[in-house]
Simulated scan of single mutants.
Amino acid sequence: MPLVILTGFPCSGKTSRATELKSFFESEMKVVHVISEDDAFEGIEKNSVYMNPSKEKEVRAILKSRAQRLLDGGNVVILDGGNYIKGYRYELYCMSKECKTTQVTVHCQISSGEAWSWNERRKNEFEKFNKEVHDALVMRYEAPDSRNRWDSPLFTVFPADRLPTSEILESLFERKAPPPNKSTQCQPISSTNFLYEMDKVTQNVVSEILSAYKIGAENDVKIQGCPIYFSCPGGTLSAPQLARLRRQFLSYTKLNPPRDEDISAIPVHFVQFLNHRLSE
């Protein structure tokens, strides 16, 4: 289950350290999965990815998704990538908490000049960074800090250093995982009947809105049992759009159940939710 996050400048030796860690864990009879940033590119030239923010974000999402699937089993997951955004590392930390597992960060420390030199020595042109992208990634890099809970335990290694494999093993398997909190753990609704009623009432609200559309209403739709009107500034919504918003409301309410479970208040809360989301 444990997660090892490798981080560092481009061409700082992360993949070599990932290979070293994999060999060590396998010698300790652990099942190991290495999730490589290069594999997530899926044949796309890496410079073009890092010059396109949306593509870059998509790659990060792919890596996180693959890691989350593998964390469900009894294995070690090594995430071999730049992981240079501290906000992204925090997301991975929350994911580990949700999976109730431990995590360590291995920072491959190297100077930007040495990293560029290593990049230049790469034989495969497809794997090389151009100067513009390399410098941009170095400038944007947010180094881990052991004082941040999402970067701790932190192991910083220089190119000439021995990788502290035993210490990493101990941190992963002899330390308790941080307990999941409200932000990382689904809280079940206490009453099954309330969940059923909420599903039925919100479906009725959606049906009333669609029925109002059929007779020509667009804004300020009156909902039965609700003192406020449903209003859509951008015009009418389709059935799939309303269904998607309804699912979002149900998911939110499951995570934040009302204390009193007052069924009569559901239409008001749902319409308020709709009006708020559509006014954003």
Rank of each mutant, 00 (worst) to 15 (best):
Ser23Asp: 13
Asp151Met: 11
Lys214His: 11
Asp220Ser: 05
Ile228Val: 09
Phe126Pro: 12
Ile78Val: 10
Arg175Trp: 04
Asn204Arg: 06
Ala177His: 04
Arg277Ser: 12
Pro258Gln: 02
Glu26Arg: 05
Val133Glu: 01
Arg246His: 04
Val34Pro: 00
Ser23Phe: 10
Thr202Gly: 04
Phe273Leu: 10
Phe41Asn: 08
Tyr213Val: 01
Val59Phe: 02
Glu98Gln: 08
Thr15Gln: 02
Ala40Ile: 06
His276Asp: 06
Phe9Cys: 09
Gln185His: 10
Gly74Asp: 07
Phe230Trp: 01
Thr192Asp: 13
Arg69Gly: 03
Asn119Phe: 09
Glu125Asp: 14
Pro233Tyr: 01
Ser190Gln: 15
Leu92Met: 04
Arg277Asp: 05
Ser171Asp: 14
Ile263Leu: 07
Asn47Leu: 15
Leu70Ser: 01
Thr101Gly: 01
Thr165Tyr: 15
Ile215Pro: 06
Ser190Arg: 12
Asp161Asn: 06
Leu71Gln: 00
Phe270Lys: 01
Glu127His: 12
Glu132Lys: 10
Met1Leu: 03
Gly82Phe: 08
Ala212Ile: 10
Tyr213Ala: 01
Ala212Val: 07
Gly216Arg: 03
Ser166Ile: 06
Ala160Lys: 14
Ile209Val: 03
Glu132Ile: 15
Ala239Lys: 10
Ser190Phe: 14
His107Gly: 11
Lys55Tyr: 08
Phe9Ala: 09
Val59Gln: 04
Ser54Ala: 13
Ile209Thr: 02
Val157Gly: 04
Ser23Val: 03
Arg247Gln: 06
Glu132Ser: 09
Lys55Ser: 13
Ser166Leu: 11
Phe41Met: 11
Ser191Trp: 08
Ser190Ala: 13
Phe158Arg: 15
Asp145Thr: 13
Pro179Ile: 09
Arg277Gln: 08
Gln224Lys: 04
Lys30Asn: 14
Gln68Thr: 15
Leu245Trp: 02
Ser65Cys: 02
Asp220His: 06
Gln185Tyr: 09
Glu98Ala: 05
Leu137Lys: 01
Ile78Gly: 03
Lys86Arg: 15
Ser251Arg: 04
Gln109Ser: 15
Asn83Leu: 09
Phe230Tyr: 02
Thr202Arg: 00
Phe24Ser: 11
Val205Asn: 02
Lys22Met: 11
Val201Met: 03
Arg162Leu: 13
Trp118Ala: 09
